[in-house]
Structures are given as structure tokens and as C-alpha cells.
């Protein structure tokens, strides 16, 4: 179990307490108390809507996240290893990196129609430059002595990728994954808000039109919890696994 779990729980409890106190003294419709938010979550869950929207969103997050990691990773490694392609593509990458997410989303919907493909393409395109830049750093940091060693032993391509390249870029890949997940789910919500008939983003836009703040907070709370859960249960252990050989006691 994580040693930081207890203080973290306490800090969340403190936040809830503050929230309760503020609503008690303010009693305004703009900020409902925690209890009514939880009540909304429970009814929404019982009706099945919560699960429906949540799975739609998670499906999109998963698809675009995986695509972006694979495509962005391949581009990043290629750029880190070839100076020519880096010269050519670096400016493109910078432009894409600094294009507002909203522009990419709108263009995707215009070009590909209001479809699932467009939604996933938009999120993937937003995330690719971010992955590529991090993975390029990883590919640039390959140990030249080890590169020489694998050339001298003439490691085949598969062996090189699996045993030499990947372990060296793994920490970068995990960093890209963690920072990327945070980016992807935010972009997915915008994509859903603009052009999808389901998903958490759609639900938020729906309740925004009704000015149902309890619903907005409820959805956001559930979704944040799910994302944090994925980070803690999947990505953090993956990071420790990637670093396992660094944790061995140093030589006597």
C-alpha cells in the first residue's frame, strides 16, 4: 500500500469539510452542498446514464490515447535518431504543439464530419506532438557506448527495440503517458461537448443548459476519481516497474 495514502485521504476529507462549511454559510444555488452532489451521482448511476456516458468517454480516451502513444512514440524516436528528419519536422511539430486544441477539433469535425472517427482523430492529433517531443528527448538520450555494443554484437532489430531501445525510452514513455492522460481526457470532453451524442462531455453540456450545478460537479467528480484511479492503479505501478533495475542496491 502507498505510504502517502493516509495523508492524501485526510486532505480530501478536509476539502469536503471546507466545501460543506462554505455551502452552509453561503447557501447559494451556485454551489450545492456535497450531499446533494452525491445524491445526484447515486440517482444518475441507478438510471444507468452515468455508466453509459462514462464508458463512452473512457472508450474514446483509451482509443485516442493508445493511437497517440504509438504514432507519437514512433515519430519521436525517429526524430531523436535522425537529424535530417528532425530538421524537417521540428517546425511542424512546434506548430501542431501550439495550435489550440479547439482549432484541431473543429477542423476534424469539418473535414471528417460529426463522426466517431473525427472525434478520435481530433484527440489523437492533439496528443501526438506532446508524446513526440517527450519521446524525442528519450531517443536522444540513448547511451552511445551501449549503442556501439549492440552494433558490435549485431543485435537484430527486434532485440534492439525490445532490450536496448525500449528500456531506455521507457521512463520517457511513462512520463508521456501520465502527462498525456491528463491532456487526453480534457480534450475528449471538449470533443464530446462539440459533436457527440454521448459521453461525459455531452452530459456536461446538457446539464450546463439546465444550470444544474450539482450534476456538473457530480460528473466532474466521478470522472476525476476514475482518472486518478487509473493513474494510481495502472500508470504509477508501471512507472515503478520500468524503474525496477534502478532500485537495486549499488555495488559494494
Amino acid at each position: 500500500m502507498h505510504s502517502g495514502l493516509l495523508p492524501r485521504l485526510l486532505s480530501i476529507l478536509l476539502l469536503l469539510l471546507l466545501w460543506q462549511l462554505v455551502t452552509t454559510f453561503l447557501s447559494s444555488g451556485a454551489l450545492p452542498p456535497p450531499a446533494s452532489v452525491f445524491a445526484f451521482v447515486v440517482t444518475e448511476a441507478q438510471s444507468g446514464d452515468l455508466v453509459h456516458h462514462l464508458t463512452a468517454t473512457l472508450r474514446r480516451v483509451f482509443a485516442s490515447f493508445s493511437l497517440a502513444m504509438i504514432i507519437g512514440g514512433a515519430i519521436g524516436v525517429a526524430l531523436g535518431r535522425s537529424r535530417v528528419s528532425d530538421r524537417i519536422l521540428d517546425s511542424w511539430l512546434m506548430i501542431l504543439l501550439n495550435t489550440p486544441a479547439l482549432v484541431i477539433i473543429i477542423l476534424c469535425y469539418v473535414w471528417l464530419g460529426l463522426s466517431e472517427t473525427a472525434a478520435i482523430a481530433a484527440v489523437t492529433l492533439n496528443k501526438i506532438p506532446n508524446v513526440a517531443v517527450i519521446m524525442r528527448e528519450g531517443a536522444r538520450s540513448l547511451d552511445p557506448q551501449i549503442e556501439e555494443m549492440r552494433q558490435a554484437f549485431r543485435f537484430d532489430r527486434r532485440t534492439w527495440i525490445r532490450h536496448v531501445l525500449f528500456p531506455q525510452v521507457e521512463p520517457y514513455a511513462v512520463a508521456a503517458a501520465r502527462s498525456g492522460l491528463a491532456l487526453v481526457w480534457k480534450v475528449v470532453l471538449v470533443v464530446e461537448l462539440l459533436g457527440r451524442p454521448d459521453g461525459v462531455g455531452y452530459a456536461l453540456s446538457y446539464y450546463f443548459q439546465l444550470f444544474n450545478v450539482a450534476a456538473l460537479l457530480g460528473y466532474s467528480l466521478v470522472f476525476t476519481t476514475v482518472v486518478l484511479f487509473i493513474d494510481t492503479v495502472v500508470l504509477q505501478p508501471l512507472e515503478s516497474y520500468a524503474r525496477r533495475w534502478r532500485l537495486v542496491p549499488s555495488a559494494a
Partner: peptide, 25 residues
């Protein structure tokens, strides 16, 4: 069979894996 001035082992693989990786798959 090359032996460099430095050992040049893969720090993320065990001793046995380092040795085996020199062999064809």
C-alpha cells in the same frame, strides 16, 4: 566476440539476460 574497455552491460537486464542477448534469437 567483442570485449570493450568498459563492461557495457545493459543495466536493465540481469546478468544471465545480458549474456544470452548476444546469441541469435
Amino acid at each position: 566476440g567483442p570485449v570493450f574497455q568498459e563492461p557495457r552491460l545493459l543495466p536493465w537486464r540481469t546478468v544471465e539476460e545480458n549474456i544470452r542477448l548476444a546469441l541469435p534469437r
